[in-house]
Design a protein around this nucleic acid. Structure first.
Lengths: 232, 232
DNA sequence: TATTTTATCAATCCAAAGATTTAGAACGAA
DNA sequence: TTCGTTCTAAATCTTTGGATTGATAAAATA
């Protein structure tokens, strides 16, 4: 290979053929990209991607027939090296969040300056994830709000706060599916002691059995290391 | 008020008093900030925030005694207008993710140029969320990976698919904390029938008791209405 | 039609879980 | 020091849970 830096191979997808032409011109003029194809259909796009394995796909996500978001998901599931940049007319936080969740490596507004789009392509082609700072801000407001609502739920009166640290350890093991014997073995204490702790836990959490205790724990922020609620 | 733009009131928190002095100097020299306080303790910081209601808190999150992340969470729970920027020595994706999840409005590395910090303060003070683009990229890699793993898990070999519809109903009631009697009453069948179903469920899910069955169900997409996995 | 799957129920039987009471040792706070 | 809390443990007892076997009837499927 003679070039130092291989040209990025780009596929353009937009249901509006005028836009498509405009984008193609813009990207081609830049000189450092190979436009391997353009299409107005998300379904066709998937096939083209399988065939040509582009580095970058510019995907309009405001298309009528097949949802661009769904297309992004399908492309990601192909497991190729193709990286998708979402093109959208809206800076809606929910749209941004969903696109990024589904695997988009960038999100650029159609109203943004063309230089912005070129920059995004370069960044994403270089293996980074790129979001214009204004959209990053939008994204995080949405992201943080979804966690905040969770916090409110688990706050007010969380019975878990009444547990002693030892009881928390026991509950932790309960939430892993251990029985008395298993817990006793792991904490190096007798089975009767575990029973005492568990009974105290039941009292404090106001439940009748271990399953309810485990459910209460999981629903109220216990073991947040691995579990959390994110509205998606 | 005579000024067009009120000076942002800033609180600095870093357990290393040398760093603290350095940051204070940097921020003060800039001229457009009021440093309302500095402290090496996260606990003291919380009290100072309650007292002085700063606009911005620069919070070192690599502190020994009280975790800076925990401090961020507590500050957010105060429900004030104070916006926290995390200061860290590490560009670890997990750290960034957790800080942002807990409500940080920015994340800046200590190794970054001072202009970057000043810029972050301005952006956050203006109501935005600010992450340097390199860290944004890190964040999203982590974010997207957590959703990707979820998809993989819930696919491959989900034992829940072997359950009959009646068994699903029973399992649903199990995941609500019902015992045999409760389930029998709700499905208008005998307790022994419920026992049969539950035993079959255990066989199919390869578990030993109801708690493990419930945990398997919750971890494998059963009742996805309210729950999803995001490693946090 | 023959066969398999599903849903129903009963009778055991043993193991595990849960309730209750009592109590000693360690520790920190008043 | 005294008091309260926590962690530990045992004994006892009742209830629930779980395993197993066997059986019937309807429904789906081959």
């Amino acid at each position: 290979m003679r070039e130092f830096k291989r040209k990025s191979r780009v596929l353009l997808v937009d249901d509006n053929s005028d836009h498509l032409r405009g984008i193609k011109e813009l990207v081609t003029l830049e000189g450092c990209y190979d436009v391997v194809g353009t299409t107005t259909s998300a379904n066709v796009a998937i096939n083209l991607i399988k065939k040509y394995r582009p580095d970058i796909v510019l995907m309009d996500i405001n298309m009528p027939e097949k949802d661009g978001l769904q297309a992004i998901q399908e492309i990601e599931r192909l497991g190729l090296d193709t990286r998708v940049i979402a093109l959208s007319g809206y800076d809606d936080a929910d749209l941004i969040f969903r696109a990024m969740k589904l695997g988009a490596k960038g999100y650029v507004l159609k109203t943004m300056a063309s230089a912005q789009l070129i920059y995004a392509i370069d960044e994403v082609a270089a293996g980074k994830v790129y979001l214009p700072s204004a959209l990053t801000s939008r994204f995080f407001e949405y992201f943080q709000r979804s966690f905040k609502e969770e916090a409110v739920v688990s706050d007010e009166e969380n019975l878990l706060t009444y547990l002693t640290s030892r009881e928390e350890e026991v509950l932790e093991l309960l939430t892993q599916g251990n029985n008395y014997k298993g817990i006793a073995g792991k904490l190096f204490i007798s089975e009767t002691t575990v029973k005492t702790h568990v009974n105290n836990i039941f009292q404090k959490l106001q439940v009748n059995d271990r399953t309810q205790a485990v459910l209460y724990a999981l629903n109220n922020g216990f073991g947040n290391r691995k579990r959390s609620k994110v509205a998606v």
